[in-house]
Every structure is written in structure tokens, then in C-alpha cells.
Design a binder for these strands. Structure first.
Lengths: 253, 253
DNA sequence: CGATAAGTTGAGAATTATCAAGGGGAGTGG
DNA sequence: CCACTCCCCTTGATAATTCTCAACTTATCG
């Protein structure tokens, strides 16, 4: 996808929250990354395991998946290039969900011990990685509201608005147009409805000239109207608080 | 509710994750708490604001709420005594959700600057507070799977199983019986369905002799069968990883 | 005891699911 | 290059789930 070095993708993602100093960038640049490419529906991190690494996305899309006894699954978050998808495994004894690839997806893994050492040398990075997990939660809550209290068309519109907003930020959605390799079955598992219904919702949005979606290419024709249908408010996608200077103190203790 | 001092409730909650040393306990005991009592449906933290304090629950129940333009709301997480509900405001520039009281609820507020200073003196507390926000996310994901991929009866059964499990841990559910002041309208907003349907689901669970629920008192009659209907697996409620010793290093840097 | 909020029930409508069959595109092997 | 195949998308018909509206009953609290 991108020509940038993997670590630069992460650095850019963190700098979007708050500027880093050169020392922080150097610490990150010194991380030993294991790169791996995944294909559609591959498990990047498997539910029930206890990984020794965390990972971030270098290109493409990934999602978190929870599986049910009856074979069904719920996709409860969507991740794009630059997202540190699996910081969670740093804290979880056992993965409560899988991370799977939505289409081709490049991933960089960092060993937990290295990550921890890095944070031990930088309060700012500790703060920012924590913040990433908190911002993640804000996206999850909004997604939940879609699942619980929006009808399928509004939920779909909301998901598209969110995705477009996040991709624009990366410069990956020129003309409100972007590549998105999710199948309709994937979308069904995201929105908690059936594949057939996804198809009908999309047909409707298409006929209302709000968007087109074919061959893995989404084109948002009328963002305003889509956002209105979705009751979309993008403030939950904003960065969080910068590190308070007091948090710095601990280095001196 | 409890006779314990407010800060001891928080300490117990953190010690459930990992033992604290005396210094950590002293740091926490030195926090200046503002106590406040709330009634049903009161806002504890209001959406859209930028609070200067975080809060934890000292007694009773609270929930996170997101509101829609049409007046509807989604309750997307439920919190019990000891939960540090609003660590999120430490990182969020603007609250993306409200925290509201479900029935009478005692809350302790801590100023952000004090909280940050405390963490600056204790890597362990930093680690644990971060972990709380991560574990929170695991609950949110599971809730999401209920909203998206379980039918209303299974979702209700799941919520009851989760709640019982969490309250048992606090010793607050003797004989699988506990006080729970949520109204059926509250439950509807949690599960993303209508009040009328909640009523019917409860009637059904009652007639199947799985539980009773009246006068704000829930009695789980057959946890096994309820857990089976819900496809309930409690591993997501487990504590996370203890702090790695390397994380400690930063004090010496 | 009256007022207000919460729970219950019925009937009909909207939304979404399921089943089933057909169509199109992309890759593969002949 | 064509035939074949597989996967995904599309569409129709019918069924299940859940919603809305409305009336009524029961609790709760001053």
C-alpha cells in the first residue's frame, strides 16, 4: 500500500495524537518488528490464546471478531492502516476475541517485552499507548449504539461515514472514494444483520444516490445526507488529551 | 451499601487484579475524594463535557449512555460497586457518553491532577488503571456481541449471567439473589429493544423457571441453564496480566 | 388516598431472517 | 481462448422477531 517504512506508519499515527520528541521517535525506530502479510479472513491474532506480541496495521483492514457457539460471529471493530489493533493482548491473560484480516492486510508485530521496555523509558509513549486503547473504547461504544438503537440503513450509513472520516485523515479517500475489500457477509457480521438484508440496504442507498459500492470500491456521493441519516457526529473520532506534565515526574522519582 | 471506606472499595477492586504494596495503598489513601450520592437517572458525568475529575462507584449501579438525535438512548455498559467508571475522561477531550445512575448510586470523584501525580509515583498503579480501561473494553465487546448476534432472550440471559458473576465476586449475591434497581425501560435501552419486548422476555424466562425479577430483586433460579441459553463464557471477566517487571524500570531512568 | 411511575397484555404493523434459486466475475486448467 | 468452478452478489417469497400503539393493572411514595 504505502511506501513508508512500517514504523513510520505507527509514528505518524501517534503524532496525530500529540507531537513526539526525537527521543521517542528513536525509541520507536529501535523496535524490532516482525512483518507479515495476511489474506482475507486469516486470523491475525486468535481468540483464546495468550500472545507474546502486539501488532499494528501497516496496510489494509482488520476487524475484531467474537465467535458464538452456533457458528455465528460478531465483528465489533474495524481497523485501518496505522491502528495499533492489538495493544489489548499486553493486558489480557487470554484473548477474548480474534483479530482477522478484511482483505489483504499487512501487519507488524512487536514483542511485549520490547514494548514494555520502550514505555519504561518514555512516559509520553506510555500515555499515548494507553490513550489509544481508550479511544478504541469510544469507537466501540458508538458502534454499540449503531447495533442497539439504529435501524440497519442508519447503521450502515454510520459505518460508511466513520470509515470515510478515518480514511480521509490518512489521505486514503480522495474524492470520497476508497478501496474496501469487505464482502457483504463481512458487513452483515459487523452490523449484526443478515447478508441478504445488507444487500437490500445497499441497493436502497445506491438507489437514493447516496453511495456506490462495487468491486470493493466505495464511493460516497452525498456525505451530508448520509451523515444525516446516520445521525453521525464525528467528535468521538478526535484525539485525546495530551500527556499532563505531572505524568512526566515519575522519571525523576 | 457497604461499611467500608470509599478508598478501600477502590483498593479492593485493584487488588483483585494484582496485590499492591503498602506504598501504593498509602498513595491511594492520600487521595482527596469528593463523595456524592445520585438518584435514578441522574447524570454522574455528562456527555459533551470535559471533566476535571474521574470517578468510581462506591455503592449501587451506573451505566454509560449515548443519546441519539431522536431522543433514544443506548446504555452500553453497566457498572457495579468498585468500578472506576470514568477513567476515560482522563484521556478524552470531550465525553462521548454520559455516565448515569441506575437507581441510588454513591460515587467518589478524584481530581485528574491528583490521579496523575499518584500514577507518576507508581508504575504499578499506572499499569493497573490502564488495565481497567482495557478490561472495560472486553466487557464492551461481549455486550456488542449480545446486541448484534443474540436474540433478545439470549441477550437478556447473558446480561443476567454477567451481572451475577460480577456481584458474586463482591459477595453481593448470596443465594444467586441480588438487588438491581434497573427498570424495564432501562433494560430496553441496554439490550437495544423495546420496553414491551423486555417485559415479554422476562415473562418467558420466569415461566421457564430460570429466574424471578420483581421489586428490584433478581433471583437466578437456574444459572446453568441460563448460561447455556446465553452461550455465556466468563473468561472475559478475568483479571489481566500483572505488571511486567520491566515496566518498573522507568523509576530508575 | 391520590398521583405518578412502572409493569402487563393484546392486536396489528414494521423490520429483519430464512430459504431458495439464479446471475456475474475472477481465476484455473484444459 | 474456452469451459468450469467457486464465491459473491442479487432477487423473490415466506416466516420469525420485534415494534408501536393503546389500554389497563399494579406498585410506590408523599
Amino acid at each position: 500500500m504505502s511506501k513508508a517504512k512500517p514504523i513510520d506508519i505507527l509514528i505518524a499515527s501517534l503524532e496525530w495524537l500529540e507531537p513526539l520528541d526525537q527521543r521517542d521517535r528513536d525509541l520507536l525506530a529501535g523496535l524490532d518488528l516482525r512483518l507479515k502479510q495476511f489474506g482475507a479472513n486469516d486470523d491475525i491474532v486468535r481468540s483464546g490464546t495468550h500472545p507474546g506480541e502486539s501488532c499494528f496495521i501497516v496496510g489494509g483492514f482488520a476487524a475484531r471478531a467474537q465467535y458464538l457457539a452456533d457458528g455465528g460471529r460478531q465483528l465489533d471493530q474495524l481497523h485501518v492502516t496505522g491502528d495499533f489493533v492489538d495493544l489489548h493482548s499486553l493486558h489480557l491473560r487470554q484473548m477474548d476475541h480474534s483479530v482477522i484480516a478484511i482483505g489483504p492486510c499487512g501487519v507488524a508485530f512487536v514483542r511485549h517485552d520490547e514494548l514494555v521496555s520502550t514505555m519504561a523509558h518514555s512516559p509520553r509513549l506510555t500515555w499515548l499507548l494507553w490513550q489509544l486503547t481508550v479511544l478504541d473504547g469510544a469507537l466501540a461504544r458508538t458502534w454499540m449504539t449503531c447495533l442497539g438503537r439504529r435501524r440497519a440503513d442508519a447503521a450502515m450509513a454510520h459505518l460508511v461515514c466513520e470509515l470515510l472520516t478515518r480514511l480521509r485523515r490518512l489521505g486514503a479517500a480522495p474524492n470520497n472514494c476508497f478501496q474496501f475489500p469487505a464482502t457483504q457477509a463481512d458487513m452483515a457480521d459487523m452490523l449484526g444483520i443478515s447478508t441478504v438484508h445488507i444487500n437490500r440496504i445497499l441497493a436502497e442507498l445506491r438507489s437514493r444516490r447516496l453511495l456506490t459500492w462495487s468491486r470493493h470500491e466505495v464511493h460516497v456521493l452525498d456525505f451530508e445526507r448520509l451523515a444525516h441519516i446516520a445521525d453521525f457526529d464525528e467528535t468521538y473520532l478526535a484525539p485525546g488529551n495530551p500527556m499532563p506534565s505531572r505524568f512526566q515526574q515519575f522519571v525523576a522519582t
